[in-house]
Every structure is written in structure tokens, then in C-alpha cells.
Write a protein that binds this DNA or RNA. Structure first.
Lengths: 410, 410
DNA sequence: GTAATATCATAATTTTTTTTATAAACAAGC
DNA sequence: GCTTGTTTATAAAAAAAATTATGATATTAC
């Protein structure tokens, strides 16, 4: 018995022509509409697709038999007879999203209806550019799949978030695990046996936040992933913007300063050298070296092992030095974002990533720098909001990308 | 007799439903396809729209009767009987594009088939923020319309390029002619009696260049309008990117420098203060003040009245000072463009605007600054090309925008 | 130059879809 | 609790569109 996916069986139109092809296309459109609206009546679908009610009914019935759609029962009430509502079958198929961070992995399972079924956070892991690290990543994913009650062949795809440059079309990573010529996504896919895609972490977070967070009508959104490094996820017209090869959003390596700090990209004067988690830690160490005091040090932490988490916690505990340094970093970051505002005129900028947990300690200096360094006519358009999803943005984004890669080609 | 446009009569589907509505929609799709392909056979259209040949034939015949489409005769040859090709009727309707520059106006008339019928360049005009200047602009447009052999009611729309901030959706200009609450486009429209739209000059040039210049498959393109100021026209997926309110592309006012030069936007350190035609003229005057020599000055030109045209001509005549200054400006501009490359990962950057006439004197320093200041993985993707259309880009862009505003709502 | 092959255009036939009609389901008003 | 107005769902009738068939037109091979 050949392994086939339900989705392909229903929508594959290679051998269809004429009326049969038309029906396949109409079914895709019905699926797309139900995907957007969660549930619809036959009358709605009929109006939307410009086909008659009887025709719509027969297509819906076929989709029900094929197992993709089901009758949700009578919900609506507009004065007359209640309409039967139809929508996707939630467990028709599933998708996995993997969010790989520097020191841990978050992983989740999404169903056909875009609901997060399982979620496993902060699985210990160390992201290094080695074969062992890659093997461990694969093992974690395989372990997660085994734990699920869902049959493996119902999982149609996996999307993995990685930081750095990623050519998402071919699934090649230029920053991690590029030991072989074969794209990383293919290597993982061969190991696990499920179609696998790669995505840049900031882009995935942006996508997650805009689809599951408190983003409503905004369609041109910039998401800033403020972590050890800084990344940008750009959504234009509610779609991820990739650029030619998927390298869009390399915001951290814009040359903004005349300093002599060598960035990990090899160049000098990058925004990231003054406005990032790494910059924050460097500045902190410098200040302590110059005799400043901080609650963190009082707590006998070794200065060398200071992490971003420590500084975030210190700021929350009202540590003055950390708050000052956050303001300094925020000011620089705001200047960078001011440039983005001038050029993009976005409706919304979302501050996400670990460092955004510091909330207004970071947001307010960013806002004032934005007002200072961008055209007021333009920046008055732009709302600056903190991420609502926090860590969850990455998983949700990855899951949704895994799903879309399979379904959006329909 | 009420004044109605042929386009509206044919495509208006307000009172249609069922099969009639479906046919209207199909006719729109036929129009769109013919608009893209110039000419197609019934077989092509039938395959494209998934409708049978007889059905396609009857829709085509209706469109012919309605005057929008005509039979181009037999062109194709694929081994069998030649197919009749159908396409748009070139003189079904017309559109006007007006490119308003600082010291002159270019204006053109486009037909239904996207062909430039008439073109009038360098009509003397001084763009000032006064009622007189606005009146003069209106008179020039009215004069142009009278000169045409085309009946006025066949001209469906006008698009006007202006520099500065423009809210294109409502046709309001924040930089010129904003004396009244009513949007500028409405004021002009009421005077002339033809539907009028406003567009930012750099965006219109970008659009013109990408649709009529030597831009082929590239779909993510940045066009730099290098004139007295600098502007950016961004095309994403071959469509003009506007941002929330149409203020996208304010590239010149990114804060890149620590200098004390006050930009005309009111802020300090803007890219435009070091990388623009105005900056070039300022630098030139400074150098002459410091005792440098140049061919232009030898020619007894008053230093105060130096224009960009003089400097461009001098550079073409191998004037060393001007070439050096162009390199300096190019270096700064390249640094700014490096930022755009990092963030946008575009396939193509086009150098346009008056100053781009200096060709490689400007392009080469820009290219080397791009390589210096952006990630090599990203910048190796980006081609840097000089505008092929030059001054024509603005007119063509405006004409096409006028046309699209009317036709793309279909 | 003619036969073989291929595509196109239209007419005739068949199938599909829409329209119209009717019954059922529900809410609101009296 | 019954009538009235509204909407949904299905059945029957009518219309529309897709197939199929046929002749016309063109290219290519011999």
C-alpha cells in the first residue's frame, strides 16, 4: 500500500480536465474559504464562490466523504431557519513546529484547524554547529513524534526555526549545520521521514505573532526579535517577506556606528554591536569593570557567566544599572527602527524575543528614539507594541509555516 | 445624456447575479489576461480560465461588440491551423501621466494598450508651494489635453507625480499645495473634469522603470531617485509598496551621520545631508571656497547659481573635482543602500533620477560601498543597474498608475 | 504536389448547472 | 399557540455549458 496523504488524494488534479478539473479547483476554493473563516454555511460559500446552492451542496458532500470537512451542526441564527455550518475536520492531519533557541528547544503539534494540540517547552539543548548537535536535534524531534497519540503518517510536515541566513525555498542553512552539500531540510527529512522545511527564527516569530497574537487588521508589520542578536521578521500584506533568497531582515548588520567593535558577522559598526543582548552583556561587564555596582554581582554571580536571563531578571527587580543599560540599548535600537519606519511606513512594530520581557524598560526608550530619529508624519502612523505571545510565537509560527507549505500550494 | 465610461458600462456588475454576474467576472478575467499577454487565442483563454472553447468564444464576441477587444487576425503558428488572436482595442480609452519636477513638467498620453501615444517633455514650470504654481500646473495639463486629437471623454484618468509625502489613497499631498482641507487630487479633478490621482515621484519612476524598462523577471526591486533630494520607490512582488499611509521610501531622512547639517526635514544627520544632489552642490561650493579648482568655475559661472545639471555635465567632461565629489556622495549613498540590501534582499537596485546620468562615476563608488557595508551573502544577490528610461520613467510610471487605478479595481 | 498530421472554429448533442418552486425550520409578533 | 416573515434545504424544471463531432485551415513529410 503506497503511502499517500489525504490532502494530495483529494486535491491532486494532474489527470483531471474539463468539469472534473473545475470541481477540483472549486473544492480547493471551498477549503481555502473554510480555512479562513473557521466555519461557513452553504449559502455563504455559494455567494463567495459564485456557484449555486445545489452545486455547493454537492461539492461539500464530496469533501465530507473524503474526510476533510464536516458538518458542525446548526449555529447561525439570522431570523429564519438555522443554517448548517461546515468546517475543517480538526484531526484530518497534523503539523510540527520546532523552535531552536541557543540553549533549548520548543516544539509543538498543530492540527488541521490551526489549533496547537501539544506543546513542549524548554527542552534542554545546546545549539552548536556540530554533527552531534544536529543529531541531538533530530532525536528530540523523533522523541516528540513518538510521544504523540497521533499516527506518524498523519503528520504531513515539520518546520524548524533557526537563526541566521536561511534559503527557505531549498531549505539550506548558511549559519548552522552546513557540513554537506545537501540542504539541511533534506538531511533531516530523510532521517525523520516527514517533509521538512527550514525557516529563519525571526520570520517565524513574526508570522506566529501576527496570526495568533493580538494583531488584527494590520497587514504591514515589523517584528523585532531582540535576543543575543537582533533579527527582523517583515510581514507585507500579511505575508512573510523573504526577499530574493530569503535573507531579508538582516537588520542587525546595518552599519550605523563608527565604533571599533567587531561584529560576529566580521564587519565593524553594525547595529548589533550597540543594540542587542550581546551588546547589553558587554556594556554591563564594562560598567562593572569601571566600578559600577549591581544587584546581580552582589548575588555572587561570576561576571563571566552572566546571561541575558540574569539581566532581564535584574531589571525586573529594579536594578538601576541594568535599567540604564536597557535604556541605552533601547535608544540605539530605536534609532535603527526609525530607519525602518521611514522606509516601510509600517502600521505596527512588535517587540519580541527574550529581551522584550523587560517591557517598558526597553519599549519607552525605543519609542522616544523613534520619535527623535524618524519623520513625525510617518512615525505617528506606527504603533509600538510588546509581543503578546512571548516564547510561544516561535512554535506557533513554525507550526503554521509547516502547515502553509503543504496547504498553500493547493 | 449622462457621461459614462465604456469600461464601467461593460464591467459594472452591481445589478447582476447568478449567471449574468459570473459572465461579468469572466469578462474581467479575459480582460486581465489579455492585458498581461498583449494577444491570445481562444484556446489559450479557454485553458487559462477553465472554461470551454464555445463559452470563451461567446464572451469574446460580446467584448468585441462592446468595443474593448478586437480580432488581431491570425498570427500564431504551431503546426496546425492558425488561431485567431484577440487583444485590447488600443484607442478604447486613454490615460494621462504628469511628472512634475522642480523646474519643468513632463506629460504623456497612454492608450488602452499601454502604448505612449504622445509625450511632451521639459515644459518650463517652477514647482513652488503657491496657488499660482498650482494654477499653472492645471493650465499646462488642460493645454495638453486640448492639443490631443483624442476626445476628452475618452481620457479616463490622470496621475500626477509629486515629490514628498503623499497619501495616495485620498490624493492628499503634505509637501505641496496643501492650502485647503480638500485633497489636492480632488481640487485638480474638479478643475479639469477628469478623475485624478496623486503619486510620489520616486514610486512612479520605480513603477515605470520596472514595467517599461529592462526589468524582466525581477519582482523585488528598489529604485533610487537621485536628484536634489533622494527618494526610494520600492516594488515588492512587482507591485508598488506604499506602507500604511503611502509614506514608504523616506530613505533620505534616515539618520546615518553625526554631522550638524540641518536637513530640510528639520532633523540632523539625515542621509540626504551627505548623499544627494543638494549635498553635492554644498560640497562643491565648500571645496571651491577652500581653493579647489573646477572647469565649471573657469567657465565664469556664478558659484551661487550652480545647478545639478552643471555638475553632471562637468563630470561627463572629466572634471576631476566633480568626479571626486560624486565618488564621495556615491560612497555615502552606497552605505545607505547597503542597509536596504540587508533588510530587503532585493534582486535589483536601479539608480535613477537626474544624478544617475553620471553613470559609472556614481555607480561604481555605490557598488563598492555596498560590498563594504552589507553582508556579502546578501549583496551578492543584488544587481545594481542604471536606469534605462531616464527621464521617461516618471511619465510612463504616472500613465500606468492612472491606468491601473481605473482598471485594477475591476 | 499530395497525403498525413495537427490545430482551430463551429454545429450538434449531451451533460452539468442554475433557476425556480416547494417544503421545512426557526424567530418574532399578536 | 398560531400566524407571518425569513432563511435554509431539497426537488423539479429550465437554462447554460461542456463534450463530441465535423469541416476548415495550415504545416510538414515524402
Amino acid at each position: 500500500m503506497p503511502k499517500t496523504h489525504i490532502i494530495k488524494d483529494v486535491f491532486n488534479d494532474d489527470n483531471a480536465s474539463g468539469v472534473a478539473l473545475k470541481n477540483k479547483v472549486l473544492k480547493k476554493l471551498i477549503f481555502k474559504y473554510l480555512d479562513q473563516t473557521d466555519a461557513s454555511s452553504i449559502t455563504d460559500l455559494s455567494k463567495e464562490l459564485l456557484i449555486s446552492v445545489p452545486k455547493t451542496t454537492s461539492l461539500i458532500n464530496e469533501l465530507i466523504v473524503e474526510g476533510l470537512i464536516k458538518d458542525y451542526g446548526k449555529i447561525d441564527s439570522t431570523g429564519g431557519r438555522k443554517a448548517n455550518m461546515y468546517g475543517l475536520v480538526s484531526d484530518a492531519c497534523f503539523f510540527i513546529g520546532v523552535d531552536v533557541k541557543k540553549y533549548y528547544i520548543n516544539i509543538g503539534l498543530l492540527n488541521f484547524k490551526k489549533q496547537l494540540v501539544t506543546q513542549k517547552n524548554r527542552i534542554p539543548y545546546k545549539l552548536e554547529n556540530t554533527q552531534e548537535s544536529l543529531n541531538q536535534l533530530i532525536q528530540i524531534i523523533q522523541g516528540f513524534i513518538k510521544e504523540q497519540s497521533v499516527k506518524k503518517d498523519k503528520i504531513l510536515s515539520i518546520a524548524i526555526n533557526l537563526s541566521g541566513r536561511i534559503k527557505n525555498t531549498i531549505g539550506y542553512s548558511f549559519s548552522f549545520f552546513h557540513f554537506q552539500e545537501e540542504p539541511l531540510s533534506v538531511i533531516i527529512q530523510n532521517e525523520i521521514g516527514i517533509k521538512t522545511f527550514l525557516e529563519n527564527d525571526s520570520r517565524a516569530m513574526a508570522f506566529g505573532e501576527c496570526n495568533f497574537g493580538e494583531v488584527n487588521s494590520e497587514r504591514n508589520v515589523i517584528f523585532v526579535n531582540i535576543d543575543y542578536g537582533i533579527g527582523l521578521g517583515i510581514l507585507i500584506n500579511n505575508e512573510i517577506y523573504y526577499g530574493k533568497s530569503g535573507f531579508s531582515g538582516e537588520f542587525g548588520h546595518i552599519r550605523f556606528f563608527d565604533n571599533e567593535i567587531i561584529c560576529h558577522c566580521g564587519k565593524k559598526g553594525c547595529l548589533e554591536t550597540e543594540a542587542s543582548g550581546n551588546a547589553l552583556i558587554r556594556k554591563f561587564k564594562e560598567k562593572i569593570g569601571q566600578g559600577s555596582t549591581s544587584n546581580i554581582i552582589k548575588k555572587n554571580k561570576m561576571l563571566d557567566n552572566i546571561t541575558l536571563t540574569d539581566i532581564i531578571q535584574a531589571a525586573k527587580d529594579e536594578d538601576v544599572l541594568c535599567i540604564e543599560l536597557l535604556a541605552e540599548v533601547g535608544e540605539k535600537l530605536g534609532m535603527g527602527l526609525a530607519a525602518m519606519i521611514n522606509v516601510f511606513n509600517p502600521e505596527l512594530i512588535i517587540l519580541g524575543g527574550t529581551l522584550s520581557e523587560t517591557g517598558d524598560f526597553l519599549r519607552l526608550p525605543i519609542r522616544s528614539a523613534i520619535n527623535k530619529y524618524s519623520l513625525s508624519l510617518v512615525n505617528s502612523d506606527t504603533e509600538l507594541r510588546l509581543s503578546k505571545l512571548g516564547e510561544k510565537a516561535g512554535i506557533l509560527g513554525a507550526c503554521l509555516i509547516a502547515r502553509n507549505k503543504i496547504l498553500s500550494v493547493l
